Amino acid sequence: QTVVIGDTTYHLNNPEAAQQIAKELAKKYGLKVVISGNTIKLK
């Protein structure tokens, strides 16, 4: 699972954790979560 935040890319072996982290950050910073395949992007 790949999480992309701005110009930073994180690789996590746990998809659920990756999605949870993405949701928390999106909520905290008012970002939009875009999931395509096994890549999660925060914009």
Rank of each mutant, 00 (worst) to 15 (best):
Q20D: 05
Q20E: 09
T39V: 12
A26F: 11
K32V: 14
A18S: 03
I40L: 06
Q20L: 12
I5N: 03
K27L: 11
I35N: 03
N13K: 11
V34H: 06
H11M: 09
Y10G: 01
Q1M: 15
D7Q: 12
V33L: 12
I5L: 06
N14V: 07
K43P: 03
L25C: 09
Q19E: 09
A18Y: 09
K41C: 15
D7K: 15
H11W: 13
Y10E: 01
N38D: 07
N13P: 14
S36M: 11
Q20T: 09
K23E: 11
I21V: 08
P15F: 14
S36L: 10
A26P: 00
T9R: 10
E16W: 13
E16V: 09
Q19L: 15
T8A: 08
V34Y: 12
K28A: 05
S36E: 14
E24H: 14
T39A: 04
T8H: 13
V33S: 01
A17V: 11
L12T: 05
I5A: 02
A18Q: 03
G6N: 06
N38I: 06
L31T: 03
L42Y: 04
A17K: 10
A26M: 08
V4R: 10
A18F: 13
Q20S: 08
G30C: 14
Q19I: 14
V3Y: 06
V33P: 01
V33N: 00
I5T: 02
Q20R: 14
N38G: 07
Q20A: 12
Q20W: 14
Q20V: 07
G30T: 02
A18K: 02
A22V: 07
P15K: 11
T39R: 06
K28E: 03
A22G: 03
T39C: 14
L25G: 00
Q1A: 14
A22T: 03
Y10W: 09
Q20I: 09
G30Q: 05
N14S: 14
T39Y: 08
P15A: 13
E16L: 10
N13I: 09
I35W: 08
I5C: 15
G30A: 06
T39M: 09
N38T: 08
V3W: 09
I40E: 00
Y29N: 02
T8C: 15
Q19W: 15
Q19R: 12
I21N: 00
H11I: 11
S36D: 12
L31R: 02
T9W: 09
L31S: 02
H11N: 07
A18I: 12
T2Y: 13
E16F: 11
V34E: 11
N38E: 03
K27A: 12
T39Q: 06
N38A: 06
Y10H: 01
E24A: 14
A18W: 14
E16Y: 10
E16N: 07
N13F: 09
Q1H: 14
Q19C: 13
N13Q: 11
Q1W: 15
K27Q: 09
I35M: 07
T8W: 15
V33A: 03
I5S: 03
A26S: 06
K28P: 00
L25M: 05
N14Q: 06
H11V: 11
K27Y: 08
E16Q: 10
G37R: 04
N14H: 07
A17Q: 12
Q19G: 05
A22N: 01
A18M: 09
K27M: 10
T9S: 07
K23W: 13
T9P: 04
T2H: 08
S36K: 09
I21Y: 13
T8F: 14
L31E: 01
A17F: 10
K43F: 14
N13E: 11
Y29L: 05
I21A: 05
